[in-house]
């Protein structure tokens, strides 16, 4: 299959609308679509099928990646999920973000997660490399957490803030969440990119800011649907919903499903 992430980068809206790289069209004929004048026409024989081997199933934690641009609220979402899920699930976090002792103290002070359940990974100034092209350090961190804490139900892997083309490798995570925020502009879902189009869950965060920044949530909703087909999108305001209820519910369902799959 031809891979060309660059071609999915933000482009002119007219051209962008004709791209349909995301899932939701399984079983249909190979898709041929027009590209810009400087691109080679090509087909996507099976765009809904991931070419990577699935992770080995076994008695291990479900791994959920949380990615998205700088400032979209990934760390706040992780904190909210820890609050919502940490008492019922055996949970650990790997963060690829620049992580200070203040961050650790913040999580600790708020009773979100004890320090031994959080690992920080250095990414050598390339956050997308660490979650996609060379996942070694993240795999080591997940393995170390599982070996030091015992069996876990859920590991959240937070990416460093990056751009719309950054996604997690299927060799690292089982499912991924992409977080954007309304203050980044209501055009973001239309711009697409692999994060918006292929993430298993798209979170549009900071909806409370929409009237202040002139963002039209109905436009974001419409564009997200057009981009993502059947894949779910949720709107969130962590200032109003400190437990990130729709995201926590989505993860609870996943964990229940994966535990059923490995035990049944």
């Amino acid at each position: 299959m031809v891979q060309h992430p660059e071609a999915q980068a933000p482009g002119p809206a007219t051209d962008a609308v004709r791209h349909s790289h995301g899932p939701g069209i399984a079983g249909q004929q190979p898709v041929v679509h027009a590209h810009g004048p400087d691109e080679v026409p090509h087909t996507h024989p099976d765009p809904a099928v991931d070419p990577h081997e699935p992770l080995l199933h076994g008695p291990r934690a479900l791994r959920v990646g949380i990615g998205g641009p700088v400032g979209s609220g990934k760390t706040a979402l992780v904190a909210a999920l820890c609050r919502a899920l940490g008492t019922r699930l055996r949970l650990a976090v790997v963060t690829n973000d620049i992580y200070t002792t203040e961050d650790a103290d913040f999580l600790l002070r708020n009773g979100v997660l004890p320090a031994e359940r959080i690992r920080a990974v250095e990414t050598g100034c390339c956050p997308h490399t660490a979650i996609r092209d060379d996942i070694s350090a993240n795999l080591d961190a997940v393995e170390d957490l599982e070996s030091s804490l015992g069996p876990l139900d859920l590991v959240l892997v937070e990416s460093g803030g990056d751009n719309l083309t950054a996604t997690f490798s299927k060799g690292l995570i089982d499912r991924q969440i992409f977080v954007v925020d309304v203050a980044g502009g209501d055009k973001v879902p239309r711009k697409g990119g692999p994060g918006v189009t292929t993430a298993d869950l798209l979170v549009i965060n900071k909806t409370d800011l929409a009237p202040l920044v002139g963002a039209d949530l109905s436009v974001m909703d419409r564009d997200a649907r057009a981009r993502r087909g059947e894949l779910p999108t949720v709107f969130l305001s962590l200032t109003q919903d400190r437990a990130a209820t729709p995201v926590a519910d989505w993860i609870r369902t996943l964990v229940a499903g994966s535990q059923h799959a490995t035990t049944g």
Binding site: V121, T123, G124, A130, S136, A137
Partner: peptide, 11 residues
Amino acid sequence: GRLPAGGHAHS
């Protein structure tokens, strides 16, 4: 250098 063996994070 693109071999996924962790080298990118070491200076």
